[in-house]
């Protein structure tokens, strides 16, 4: 029979086959098709017209692409730095034994992560809206301001607001992952160090932190990949507009707007590939940098 003729190791192909079939159809085909489109000009009606690398040429000189990229990076950096530090501090605190209600705190901190990002964008949009947002009304009630402030019209404020949403949504998640990493570190090691007279801070920097490096690399890289694709929150927060003055237009929003509201599918696809290349570059850079640091710390 067939199975007898098949060498044991070749069963591996059968195991991975379903995944790859689905992947080729729903993952690879769309990407290849998008690449084909990126070399063409197409508004969705009729058939695409091949125009070579003109879209990529346009991309390289496109100030809006760089602006969107800047917005995305800005929003990401402002959110990820506190996210990764606060969550580390929390993880260490909540890993301590004297804290009461640990699991309650963990649950509360993790909680924002499970809430639909799209709903969050809407909610925050409502809270900070100009003339009827509860934030302005709170400030007026407290006597801090007398007229409502037009928050949605302030570019940096809106970027910070998105960063805050992201921070708020992800610090609990990062914390849980750090805690998991901490649980992997032997308690004996830490206690031995403390008995040797090392202070808590010393233990943290000399032992805990280096041991957490792999987890940190994991967190940084996954957050780069996710962070460069921010879409839901700014999209629903600004009702798809990227206002004010495109300050909250992220790269993916720009891609979406170009392809799906302006119907420039070719150029939209080129933006997608541009973004992909940038994500790969950032991931590699951060991987290399963090790895080198690890070696330095150990050596």
């Amino acid at each position: 029979m067939f199975s007898k003729g098949l060498k044991k190791e070749h069963y591996g192909y059968l195991f991975i086959a379903p995944f790859f079939i689905i992947f080729i159809v729903f993952g690879l085909y769309p990407i290849v098709y998008s690449f084909y489109l990126s070399l063409s000009s197409w508004d969705g009606f009729g058939s695409p017209e091949i125009i070579g690398f003109a879209n990529y040429k346009r991309l390289i000189g496109d100030y809006m692409f760089y602006k969107a990229l800047f917005n995305t990076l800005f929003i990401w950096v402002i959110s990820v730095i506190p996210q990764l530090t606060v969550s580390l501090i929390l993880a260490v605190i909540l890993h301590e034994k004297f804290i009461k209600g640990k699991s309650l705190f963990r649950a509360i901190f993790f909680f924002p992560n499970i809430v639909t990002a799209a709903s969050l964008g809407l909610l925050v949009g409502l809270i900070f809206s100009w003339q009827s947002g509860s934030f302005n009304e709170l400030l007026i009630n407290l006597g801090i301001i007398s007229d409502p402030v037009n928050w949605p019209d302030k570019p940096y404020f809106m970027r910070l607001l998105i960063s805050s949403i992201l921070f708020w949504q992800y610090f609990g998640y990062s914390m849980i992952i750090y805690i998991a990493g901490l649980q992997g570190i032997s308690r004996d090691l830490l206690e031995a160090a403390e008995i040797d007279g090392a202070s808590k801070v010393q233990v943290f920097f000399k032992i805990t932190l280096p041991l957490l490096k792999p987890i940190m690399i994991f967190q940084v890289i996954t957050s780069i990949i996710g962070g460069m694709q921010i879409f839901d929150q700014p999209y629903t927060l600004t009702n798809g507009s990227g206002n004010p003055d495109n300050a909250t237009l992220t790269s993916v929003m720009y891609l979406y707007k170009t392809a799906f509201t302006r119907y420039q599918y070719g150029y939209g696809s080129a933006i997608a590939f541009g973004l992909f290349i940038i994500i790969v570059i950032f991931s590699i850079i951060s991987f290399v940098v963090m790895n080198r640091k690890t070696k330095g710390a150990q050596g």
């Binding site: 019209d153 507009s241 206002n243 003055d245």
Partner: peptide, 18 residues
């Protein structure tokens, strides 16, 4: 529609001192 929305965005910004 597209140009109108760019126009009102810019106008709005101009009025708000942008």
């Amino acid at each position: 529609n597209d140009i109108n929305s760019i126009w009102t965005n810019k106008l709005n910004e101009y009025l708000n001192g942008g």
